[in-house]
Nucleic acid binder design. Sequence first.
DNA 1: ATGGCTGAGCTACTCAGA
Length: 258
Amino acid sequence: MKIISWNVNSVRARIDNITNYIKDDKPDILLLQETKTQDENFPYENFENVGYNSYIFGQKSYNGVAIISKLPIKNISKDFIKDEKKQARVINGEIQLKKKKIEIINIYVPNGNPINTEKYEYKKNWLKKFIAQVKKKISLGSNIIIAGDFNIIPEEIDVYDFKRYENDALGKLEIRKKFRELLNVGFVDVYRIKNKKKQEYTFWDYFAGSWQKNYGMRIDHFLLSNNLIENISSININKKPRSKLKPSDHTPIELIIN
DNA sequence: ATGGCTGAGCTACTCAGA
């Protein structure tokens, strides 16, 4: 089973790029972040036409997450955490992999910049609440996949110039510790366990020729609960979509489990 | 280098992103 996570930076502006990508890469499940549209304007038909169901949690202009799937997803939920700002940042549901029931949690973590503002506090609180909920699920023995745009640079190797980001909401130790805390609840960062020393990115800024210079960062992740490690087949960051015309600033990360 | 770009909402410009 192929599951892909991609921050598309507007599902409507990117719809042709996305459907072309689906035709090439044939995911079973595509997790989208930053869809940036209300539910009534979501391009359901475009996904239907290539054979997929859409489960969406949209919002006007900002945020928005969606699960695009060939097979039905059970028990879709849009209230994984209580968000006082009511932002559309988490959608989760259940799939079946052989005898295992798996909870898939698609997330778009707040950016948190600038750091000396309420936005940073919101990110910290958001992560705190998210980790608490995940901990509850793990204590019940659930099989869990968390995927999406974490807006966290886990380690120095995960950005082209760490010095520039150590006081940024993506690279601050306090935030990186939240990522480690999540791992310590009982997860693996699938890309990093499969690629111990490799320096690859999932995001490149639009400006300053960041893509051409490979000034990127690895902030989109697949975290699998320890009870799913044996099911991991491969993980791949697919840079091709970032090289296309009118690209998202993020590129997809692709997981295969069996 | 707190942004040199991009998108949404909207029609001039702000907000947000990372």
